[in-house]
Simulated scan of single mutants.
Amino acid sequence: MTGGVLGGAWDWLADGANWSGESGVWHRLAEHAYVSGLALLLACAVALPAGLWLGHLGRGGALAVNVSNVGRAVPVFAVLALFMVSPLRNAGYAPTVIALVLFAVPPLLTNAYVGLREVDRSVVEAARGMGMSGGQLFRRVELPLAWPMVMTGLRSAAIQVVATATIAAMVGQGGLGRIITAGFTTYNTPQVVAGALLVALLALLVEGALVAADRLLSPLRHSPSRTEHS
């Protein structure tokens, strides 16, 4: 039975007719990437500066993290449903994007804050003793050492957003979720599986891209101490 469903999903994906047109995979993929990317960018713009700044100051961060984590207890679809009965219901993708932003902020904010606070205090004090200003300390010591934790939060948020963006289909908007809901509507199980596989593949591609970006852009990769020991 499983083999039959997977085989049917492969046949659905191999059919070129399912990839073209407004209901085709390419169009739905573009919609999904747009919603996910916009939500992730907005979440990063809000959460990363706040988390890094609070982590640098060492004050008020715990409260901010706890407040943001309350959002994890609220189902994203419930938030989206509330937006859909508000004046935003006719604002295109805005309700979905806002719901996804609220969903992505907690891991970004938490990891940024914790990453800064877990930097070895002896290293920080040594840098201060060398006469570094607050800005220099942040850029040259704290941020490079917190980078792995920050990127872990970014990867987690990105995967969650890509997977959860399928909810846009629940309110009649685009994305790969429309392939899944269309399969449910027509009792086409292979199409449902094919849609789920496409979402999973996109999430894996995003994860791989962020891992590659981490390796290329990591401050630790270009730090003097790392260069001296290489």
Rank of each mutant, 00 (worst) to 15 (best):
G153E: 09
V65T: 14
A165F: 07
E118N: 12
R128W: 08
L145S: 06
L198Y: 08
S122I: 01
L40A: 03
A14W: 04
V162K: 08
A203P: 02
L201N: 07
L216S: 02
G174Q: 15
N18R: 01
P148M: 11
L52Q: 03
W26E: 10
V141L: 11
A45K: 05
R226W: 04
S225P: 00
L102S: 05
G7F: 05
A64E: 13
L116V: 15
A50V: 14
Q173P: 05
G183D: 05
A78N: 11
D15H: 00
R72Q: 07
Y93W: 11
S20P: 00
N188V: 02
L38T: 14
V161Y: 12
S230M: 05
Q136M: 07
A50C: 10
A9P: 02
R178S: 15
T189L: 14
S86Y: 07
G8K: 02
V141D: 10
V25T: 07
I179C: 06
S230Q: 03
L6M: 11
S122C: 01
L13D: 09
G177S: 09
H32Q: 11
P49V: 10
W53V: 14
N69V: 04
L88M: 09
H229K: 01
V5S: 02
M170S: 12
Q173M: 15
V150Q: 06
E31F: 07
A196T: 14
A194M: 01
S68P: 06
W10P: 00
H222E: 11
I179W: 03
N111T: 06
A62S: 08
R178E: 15
A64V: 13
E207V: 02
G60P: 12
E125D: 15
A163W: 08
R72D: 01
M170C: 02
L201T: 15
